[in-house]
Each structure stands twice: as structure tokens, then as C-alpha cells.
């Protein structure tokens, strides 16, 4: 009975505080750190889930990982230290952006190779087209007449 009353008093005391102070689930002192935390947890993969980052996943392991990232950031760890620590435990699998090394070189180079290769082919086509037909003529009279006729045909049908 007494216990209940004390609890009630404590509850009433806390009430206005609770109503005003909405805290982040993972509070930081600076907005920059908050942002860093958000970015980090969105770029780490939950090892247990199908394919989710640890920010979005409700799995217990994702929560453990968020807690660990939070703990390390609060202790002043750099992003590199945080990812290294998690890779050390769960493997490179947890990084959504794999680092650049000899295994992933081809992956990172793909867009560059594809665009450069494609542009080279197009340049080749242009150069070949020029060589073949150096004096590109404008439309001949016959062509112009035929084109006009085509355009007229279209208008007739409208």
C-alpha cells in the first residue's frame, strides 16, 4: 500500500518530464554524430535477416549490432574502427559497400569499363562513317520532294 503510494508519487514527479523530453532511441550530443550513426547503421547488413540493414531490421542481432555501433561511437571510435570491429566478428558480408581490393576491382570498374568501351565503339562508328562518306551531301531535290509528299500524306489523314 505504502509502496504503491510512493510509486505513484514518483510517477507524478516524472510525468511532466516524460511528456516534454522525447529522446532519440540512440541519443548523441551532436547532430553530426547522430547523422554519422544513422549512415553507419544504414550501410551495415544484418547477418541473420534476408536482406536488410541493421537500421531497418527488428531482429535481435540487428539490435545488438546497433547497440555496439552506438557504444563505439559514444567512445569516440571512427567509422573505420566501427566497421572493422563488425567485420572482424561477422565478416565482410555485413558491409553493403565492399571495400576496393583485388577481388572487387572488377565490380567497381564495371561502370567505367562499360561506358568507356561503349564510347570507344561509338567513336569508331563515327570515324568509319566519315571515312566512307567524306562529302556528306544535303538532301537532293528528289529526296526533298518525296519527303514533302510524305508529310502531306500525313496531314491528309488528320
Amino acid at each position: 500500500m505504502l509502496m504503491g503510494r510512493i510509486l505513484f508519487a514518483v510517477w507524478v514527479l516524472l510525468l511532466p518530464l516524460a511528456a516534454s523530453a522525447t529522446s532519440e532511441v540512440y541519443p548523441f550530443d551532436t547532430a553530426a554524430d547522430q547523422e554519422r550513426f544513422r549512415t553507419l547503421i544504414s550501410e551495415l547488413r544484418c547477418p541473420k535477416c534476408q536482406n536488410q540493414n541493421i537500421a531497418d531490421s527488428n531482429a535481435p542481432i540487428a539490435k545488438d549490432m546497433r547497440d555496439e555501433v552506438y557504444r563505439m561511437l559514444r567512445q569516440g571510435a571512427t567509422n573505420q574502427q566501427v566497421t572493422d570491429a563488425l567485420v572482424g566478428r561477422f565478416g565482410e558480408f555485413v558491409l553493403y559497400k565492399p571495400g576496393f581490393d583485388e577481388r572487387t576491382a572488377l565490380l567497381w570498374a564495371t561502370p567505367l569499363i562499360a561506358v568507356l568501351g561503349g564510347v570507344l565503339v561509338v567513336i569508331g562508328i563515327v570515324i568509319r562513317g566519315r571515312r566512307r562518306d567524306p562529302s556528306e551531301s544535303s538532301l537532293s531535290d528528289a529526296e526533298r520532294r518525296r519527303a514533302e509528299q510524305l508529310l502531306e500524306d500525313r496531314d491528309d489523314g488528320a
Binding site: 547477418p47 541473420k48 555496439e68 566478428r89 561477422f90 565478416g91
Partner: peptide, 12 residues
């Protein structure tokens, strides 16, 4: 608390 489990990389 799952401290060693976490350090081992236990995921399930």
C-alpha cells in the same frame, strides 16, 4: 547479455 556470442559473430 550475449557478449561472447556477439564477439563470436553468432547470428542464430
Amino acid at each position: 547479455q550475449g557478449r561472447l556470442g556477439f564477439d563470436l559473430g553468432v547470428y542464430g
